[in-house]
């Protein structure tokens, strides 16, 4: 059992390493992708400088917290697209019958699929988050928490993408849902939750899990709160388990050929 897990992890690691090597085939492209993505994210600092000139705090956040929010979102997005980029285009593989290749391998189908691609530009996202965090509010403890929440955030985003992508097992035309769900999450997670009220707030915690991925972690990083910390971890585990369950339910449908009409 233990060696099986070890072997599986080793294969995943090799996959990611080879993915990155593929992205590095052209050094110039690789570097511009990373650097420009960092600049791209940095452009939004202008937005917040302007907004904070009008008011000292927005929705209970100061510049420091906003940067923490932005940094965590960028790093989580980055990490999820370095390790599990294919989870975000899952629908394409399902609809075109491309899961076949993974089904003949003696390893976890889900992990093999997810780790079969990486995005070079997301390395820029990941680094940007770290840089921002270190520039605006560095402390050793916070860095540690930041890295941990980057992992939970990345897992929440990946799980969400998997859930949305798995819809394609049942509804062929649901291809765009995944893209929009993740985009929606990103749109919300770069603004302070204090500006939303009522239904919107409810949505942010129960429909699109921005609250658990970003708002709570930022709160914990600003002033540590064990209960909230555990809630974030617990929610991550729960959502990931749900995503894995739904994926494998869908995979059964795939294997029973119910999607053949899409391929014929």
């Amino acid at each position: 059992m233990l060696t099986a897990v070890k072997n599986q992890l080793w294969v995943c690691l090799l996959s990611v390493k080879y993915n990155i090597m593929r992205e590095m085939t052209n050094r110039f492209t690789f570097v511009t992708n990373i650097v420009f993505m960092m600049l791209n994210n940095a452009a939004f600092i202008v937005q917040w400088v302007i907004l904070f000139k009008m008011r000292g705090e927005i929705g209970g956040y100061t510049m420091r917290e906003i940067m923490l929010l932005w940094g965590l979102t960028a790093s989580s997005y980055g990490l999820s697209h370095i390790l599990f980029a294919r989870a975000f285009t899952l629908h394409e593989l399902i609809v075109n019958g491309k899961l076949d290749a993974y089904l003949v391998l003696p390893k976890s189908v889900l992990l093999s699929v997810m780790t079969s691609a990486s995005e070079a530009s997301s390395i820029g996202d990941f680094l940007y988050g770290l840089v921002v965090m270190c520039l605006f509010c560095f402390s050793v403890g916070r860095l540690f928490l930041f890295l941990l929440f980057t992992v939970t955030g990345a897992l929440i985003m990946t799980a969400l993408a998997l859930l949305a992508g798995s819809l394609s097992f049942w509804f062929v035309r649901s291809e765009m849902v995944g893209v929009h769900v993740v985009n929606t999450m990103i749109s919300f997670s770069t603004y302070p939750d204090g500006i939303f009220h009522g239904t919107a707030r409810f949505l942010l915690y129960f429909v699109i899990p921005v609250g658990m991925a970003v708002y709570w972690p930022v709160h914990v990083m600003v002033s540590f709160d064990l209960a909230m910390f555990l809630k974030v971890v617990g929610y991550t585990v729960f959502l990931m388990a749900a995503a894995v369950y739904v994926f494998y339910r869908g995979l059964k449908r795939y294997s029973s050929g119910n999607l053949m009409e899409a391929r014929m």
Partner: peptide
């Protein structure tokens, strides 16, 4: 150059933010 997309992002962000 091989990949012009990074330049598109920067142009887009200039338009978007300002």
């Amino acid at each position: 150059i091989e990949d012009a997309h990074p330049f598109q992002w920067l142009y887009d962000k200039l338009i978007l933010v300002i």
